[in-house]
Amino acid sequence: MLKAIRFTMIFAAFFLAAPLTAQAETAETAKQVVEKFQAELIDVMKQGKQLGYAGRYAKIKEAVINSHDLNKIARIVVGKEGEKLTVEQQNKLDEVFSNLSIASYAHNFKDYSGESFVFDAEEETTRGGVVVHSHLVIPDDKPVKFDYMLKENGSSWRIINIIANGVSDLALKRSEYTTILQREGFDSLINKINEKIDNYSKQ
């Protein structure tokens, strides 16, 4: 159970990473982008123990940056509140958000017990996006449904949301981030994020 929870959330955690530009490599399809990312994730889990936290962090960083549109995610997550941020604040947010996303993957995907991803279907949305439906098979547990939403950035497909068992990471994060910005302000948001990163690296 705990594992299922972790998987679900972790996926979600990623998105907001930094504004490292998503470079268009050879044009992969949306499905290929997702499957490559999933394969890298499973790979990190398999080597999780040997790599340690720092090792997992370094390895997963690449995978996240190459598959997610972190710029876009960071913009969506702060919603309308983003208009009130200065350029420096936006950059700072991009930076810590990216660290948080990678740290939470590195913290949560640390071991392997026979999990595997299975592709289910792919569909186009009316706005030119693609949803890749898949699920994670966990031995002796209920499978977890993972739906990836991708948008084209330049000539390459990038993940902008992961919905795990119906819970949208982007929607969840957006509610949290906008609420904190409204109630407590920008500095508090950054402090909270840094605190989480700290905790992840310690455990």
């Binding site: 119906g166 819970v167 982007l170």
Partner: peptide, 22 residues
């Protein structure tokens, strides 16, 4: 979201979600 997913038996509007956010 979890309740919504149960109510719709996993068919909750993942697509709408993206549409609205975008």
């Amino acid at each position: 979201q979890w309740r919504d997913n149960l109510i719709t038996d996993g068919k909750s509007e993942a697509k709408n979600d993206l549409l609205d956010l975008e």
